[in-house]
Each structure stands twice: as C-alpha cells, then as structure tokens.
C-alpha cells in the first residue's frame, strides 16, 4: 500500500513538474512580439549558445566522420562492398549521429551553461530584481535563450553532418583508397533530400526544443544555493541526454519504419 502511494506521489510530482515547465515556456514565448527590443537579446544569445558551441561541434563532427569512414571501410571491404562507404557514412550522420550527438554535446556545452546562468541569476536576486522593475524575467531572460537554443541546435547539427561526411571522405577516399567518384555518386543515389536530410533536421528541431526547454526550466527553478545550482546543472545534462535518446527512438520508429 505504501509502495502504491509512493508511486502515486512520484507520478503526481512528475506531472506537476511537467505542467509547471509547460506554463513557464508558454508564458515566456507567448505574448506581443517586440522585435526592436528582443532582437538584440536574441542575437546576443545566438552568440553565447550557438557561436560558442560551434568549435566543439565541428571538431566532434570531423572525428566522428573519420571514425565512421575507418570502421565502415574495415567492415565493408570484407564483403567487397567498400563503394557503399559513402551512403553508410552519409546516412548514419544524416539520420542519427548528426542530430543525436549534436543534441548530447549541446546539452553538455550550452544546456548546462544556460542552467547555471539562470540559476545564478535567481540566486543573486537578479530575476527578482527584474520583476520589481516591472520587467517580466520570462520574456526578458528565458525567451531569447529559448529561441536561440531552438534555432541554433539544428544549425549546429547541419554543420556537424556536413563536416562528418567530409571527415569520412578524407579517411575513406584520400587515405584508404575508395574510388572518389563512386563515393559521391553511390551516396547521391541512396540519400534522399526529403526522407533523409529533412527528417534529420526535424529530429534536430525536436531535440533542440526539448533540451533548451529542460535547461531553462532547471535553471529557473534551481534552488538558489551553490548546491542547488550544481545539482540543477547535472540534472539538465542527465535529463536532457536521456530525453534525446528516448525521443530519438520514437522519432526513428515514426520516420524510418
């Protein structure tokens, strides 16, 4: 009986948490748009969230592409099918690794920073102070960060994928000697713009929404102490990553089956 009550209580907690997170999100993004005021804020966050994550994304994409080229080659060459290296590298990056790895890196790089920043703003009473100045902190602080995360993650995923394919090309063609023409043409024959590229972008948009949302909510509701902020930051990375992996399965099942 106790266990049942415990289960009930924790599910209620989860649902009320999700409800509160939804309300926070709606309050921050719904309202009269004020482009003159919000665009500079958005731009600033694009810099913090997007530009500053670019380097780690590009380097990771390069290495993942190179590893795919190497691993793919050693497997495919046994079947005499090394010409399939192009589609293998491109499809795994476009459909899976591009959106997923970008989202995981983004949760660790930008998500944790967002949580810590907003948590600190709460702890140092900056959010309270905005409220007392009759400025809505949800519109002022949360909304530009949300949009910047939502827009920049798919952009980062596209870069990751493109760089990864180039990395696979270097290893496969320049180093291991797969035929240059075959690499690209077989790839082109099996990669479809809508089914592969666009579905990857859609995945990425979903991950961007979820990861940014989690990061902002965890920061906004963080306990205003150093222990509270550090646990909120950890929780952003853990919850964000699990949400990405879980959603990835659901989206893949819907899109590619």
């Amino acid at each position: 009986m106790d266990k049942l009550a415990k289960l009930g209580r924790s599910s209620l907690d989860i649902f009320s948490g999700m409800g509160a997170a939804l309300i926070m999100l709606l309050q921050s993004i719904i309202g009269k748009p004020q482009p003159a005021k919000s665009f500079p804020l958005f731009l600033r966050q694009m810099y913090v969230v997007g530009v500053q994550s670019m380097l780690i994304i590009i380097i990771s994409g390069m290495f993942i592409g190179m590893v795919l080229g190497l691993q793919g080659y050693t497997i495919l060459v046994d079947f005499g099918a090394e010409q399939a290296l192009g589609p293998m590298v491109a499809l795994s990056l476009l459909r899976e690794l591009g959106p997923v790895v970008t989202a995981l890196l983004f949760a660790g790089r930008a998500g944790s920073a967002l949580t810590a920043e907003i948590g600190l703003m709460r702890a140092t009473e900056q959010l309270s102070s905005l409220e007392m100045m009759a400025v809505d902190p949800l519109r002022r602080v949360v909304a530009p960060r949300f949009w910047a995360g939502f827009v920049s993650m798919p952009m980062l995923a596209l870069m990751f994928t493109a760089v990864g394919i180039i990395g696979g090309y270097w290893v496969g063609v320049q180093w291991l000697g797969v035929d240059d023409g075959a690499f690209w043409s077989v790839m082109q024959a099996s990669v479809d713009w809508r089914a592969d590229v666009m579905n990857g972008v859609i995945k990425s948009l979903v991950f961007a929404f979820v990861v940014t949302w989690i990061a902002l909510y965890k920061g906004y509701t963080a306990e205003p102490t150093s222990a509270g902020i550090s646990s909120a930051t950890t929780s952003t990375v853990v919850t964000g990553s699990l949400a990405v992996l879980g959603l990835d399965f659901v989206l893949t099942a819907i899109m590619f089956s």
């Binding site: 476009l94 596209l158 493109a162 394919i165 790839m187 024959a189 990669v191 479809d192 713009w193 590229v197």
Partner: peptide, 13 residues
C-alpha cells in the same frame, strides 16, 4: 554552406 553542401553533394535532388 553546410546546407548547400548537403543539397548538392550528398543528397539526390
């Protein structure tokens, strides 16, 4: 640039 690369070089448009 990434998008154009994917469109022209990778996908069969």
């Amino acid at each position: 640039v990434a998008l154009v690369f994917l469109a022209l070089r990778v996908a069969s448009n």
